[in-house]
Each structure stands twice: as structure tokens, then as C-alpha cells.
Design a protein around this nucleic acid. Structure first.
Lengths: 213, 213
DNA sequence: CAATTAGTATACTCTACGGTGTAGTTTATA
DNA sequence: TATAAACTACACCGTAGAGTATACTAATTG
């Protein structure tokens, strides 16, 4: 159950062949491909091993089971998301600009091919078996809460008027996800940068139109 | 591949035991349960047969394969959605009321336990294998387009000002889904009627605030 | 070099499941 | 009541995949 830390330095504790991080990376990448293509059940450890040019046994030496492997991916996804979905209130930058940047980060993250593939695999599994995946998804949903903090700050600064920052943040999230996340995830839509920008701009506009003082 | 019609009258074409619609229903219901609980691959025909108190052979006599069975469910889902997601513009009913009713229908539909289970199963599969499911999901996404018609009508009637009715309808859809659909589907949130009503009201408010003339 | 650990190749077990075949039972119609 | 279809019970087949065992080679360090 314990997930290997992404420590870049293999522990040197005596003689012996050092563990290959390259191989580990290859296994994870192959796993992403397979899980995305065939889902959790459909993906086979044999295929993952083959596709990463690693013997099945090695795969099992790195990841004790299919579930552990999947969980590692989930963990990784959590990292990516939490790195991106940060927003801090800056009093001297126009709200419009801050919001736009935040939304664009979301859009960019989900447009990235590998992240999208991984997200799809996780989402599919999450819908079926929320527990398996809860921790990572929380990162994802929680971005709304982080954003709620931003809204509160903006309110305190007198630039927004939101009776409930949480609701307001949900509104913004809904608009952004509806515009540039779900279409990509569900409908295979590829948004051109122009489209994405336009959609974001309008969402921001609507949000500010309603909440800005 | 041909999907059995939901005709309530079994064709009477001579002697012989008539096909039992009760059993058919039981199989479909069991299938919903199993697909939801274990996903497409995870669900087993044996389990579905057992859970519906029907012999495996009968199950296969009704549905030639697992895929056919699943497709029948998808079809059914399409029906449910398209029945609910109808909205027609009425010039003499306040917009607020029409929108609210429409949103509440969406909310009610997804709150229904069986529909929710079915929707989850289909969604999970859709993310993985869009083709298998495309037809039904189209019903679902299309509701936005139906709604776009409503927006256009309201504009013609001078009650809304929306440069792009399609975008406007997407905005509304995003707000509603973000408020009362995705939380239920993804986060297992159970919305009390009060919560749902409040969330819808605010979404409607925001929409009208931005688009109403 | 010796020791030790990582990785390989391959064969194997066990289980689960999709789908079929069959012989018999039930429930209807004409 | 004869006939025909729906349904049952159950054995069966083939395959695929998770995980293991083993005997090997490769790459390190002291």
C-alpha cells in the first residue's frame, strides 16, 4: 500500500545493481497508456510490461500489484493538478487578469495529452469505485476550495461582492469546466487556443459581471 | 445488433409460451446494478443472470451478448434523458420560472437512484470507449442544443440579449451541471431538496443577471 | 574479486468469465 | 390436447489475465 516516493536518488545501501529510474518511468508511462486505452480492468499487466520493455517480474518488483500501480498513477495525477491549480490573490493585479490566468492554467493542464489520458482513466475508475481514487480526485475538486479563498480575499479587498465565496467559486469553476474541461474530457473536443481563450474570456466576463463591485 | 423495442405488447404469433416482460425488466435492472457496481468489464453475465433470478441461457436468449445488453441500457438512458430534457419557450410564463423548472427536471432526473447508477456506468464507459455509447450521450449533451433554441426564442421575444445563444445555453448548462449534476455524479453528494432549490435559484439568478434585458 | 541486488525469460497455476449445447420443464395458443 | 415457444439447470469450452516460481544474466560497491 505504501507508495514509492518520487525521490530522484535511489537509496544507496550497499552493493548491488541500482534500481533503474528510467525503467520505472517507462512502466508508469506505459501504464498510463494502457489504463487510458482499456480502463482499469481492461488493462493487462502483461501488456504494460511489454509496452514498457520490461519483464513482467520487474514490473511486479516495482509495483506489488495492479492496484498499487494504479494508485501510483493517481498519486502522480494529484501532484500535477495541485501544482497547477494554485491561485493567490494579488491586490494590484486586475481581477480579470488573475482569473484568466487561473482558467488558462486549468485549460492547459487538461489539454496536455498525457494528463488528459490519465485523467480519463482515473475519472472512469472514480465513477465506478470512488474509494480507489478519492485522494487524487480530492486534489481536483479541492481546487474549488482553494479558489474560494481567492474570492474571499477579493471580497475583503472590496473588489468583489459575494455573499458566499464558496458558491461563487463553484460558479466560476462550473463555467470554466463547462467551457474548457468537460468538452475536452467527454466529447473529445480539441479546443484551439483561440477557442479556449474566447470561452474563458466570456466566462470571466460573466463572473465579473455578476460578482464584481 | 438490433435493439428490442420497448413495446409493451409481446408479439403474438402462434402457440408457445409468451416472452416474459417481467423477466426482461428484471434482467435490465440487474444489469444496471452490476454495470454500475463493477463497470462494463467487471460486470459478469453470470452475476446479472443470478441477480435477476433468470437462467444464464435466458439472459442470452434476450440479449445476444454483453455488448448488446449494455447497448440496450444505453438506449434506455437516452429515452429517459430525452423525455426530461425538453423545454419549450412560453412567452407568457416568466423566464425565471421556465428556467427553474428546466433545471429542476435535470436535478430530479439525476437524483433518481436507478438513473444515477445507470448514468454512472455509462459515463465511465463513455470516457473509456466513446463509440460504444456515443448515441446515448448525444441525447445528453444535446440537451444543451435544445436549450439553445429556447434562448433564441427568448431573444426574439426581447426578453434576453445573448449574442450567441449557443454560448449562453452552455453557460446555463454549465452552471446547472456544476451545481446539481456533477456533485451528485462524482462526489456522491446527496442534495436535499432545499439545497438543490437554492443552488438552482442562484444559477438562474446569475444567468438572468447577465443575459436578461 | 565477492557479494548483492536489479532485471530477464519463461513456464506455470488458478480463477473468472463470455458464450454454447442440451435435455428437460413450463406456459401459453389453436 | 397437441404444439411450439420460453425458460431452466447444468455441464462444458476456450481464453485471458493476475500473480508466482525459478534459474538465469547484468550491474553495481566494498
Amino acid at each position: 500500500m505504501s507508495i514509492a516516493q518520487p525521490s530522484e536518488t535511489p537509496a544507496r545501501r550497499g552493493p548491488g545493481r541500482p534500481v533503474s529510474l528510467t525503467k520505472r518511468r517507462a512502466m508508469l508511462d506505459a501504464a498510463i497508456r494502457e489504463f487510458q486505452a482499456h480502463g482499469y480492468d481492461g488493462a493487462s499487466m502483461d501488456a504494460i510490461a511489454a509496452s514498457s520493455d520490461v519483464s513482467k517480474r520487474t514490473l511486479y518488483n516495482h509495483f506489488a500489484s495492479k492496484e498499487v500501480l494504479f494508485r501510483s498513477l493517481v498519486e502522480e495525477m494529484g501532484q500535477r493538478v495541485s501544482v497547477f491549480s494554485k491561485i493567490e490573490y494579488s491586490p494590484d493585479v486586475p481581477l480579470r487578469e488573475q482569473l484568466t490566468r487561473y482558467a488558462q492554467d486549468s485549460a492547459r493542464l487538461i489539454q496536455d495529452g498525457e494528463t488528459l489520458a490519465l485523467f480519463r482513466a482515473i475519472l472512469a475508475e472514480h465513477v465506478r469505485n470512488p474509494k480507489l481514487v478519492a485522494s487524487a480526485m480530492e486534489h481536483y475538486w479541492r481546487d474549488e476550495y482553494g479558489f474560494a479563498g481567492w474570492v474571499s480575499a477579493a471580497c475583503r479587498d472590496g473588489k468583489l461582492r459575494a455573499p458566499s465565496p464558496k458558491r461563487a467559486s463553484r460558479h466560476f469553476s462550473s463555467l470554466i469546466k463547462g467551457a474548457v474541461v468537460w468538452p475536452v474530457v467527454f466529447e473529445q473536443r480539441v479546443l484551439t487556443p483561440r477557442e479556449a481563450r474566447a470561452a474563458i474570456e466570456e466566462a470571466v466576463e460573466m463572473f465579473l459581471g455578476y460578482y464584481a463591485t
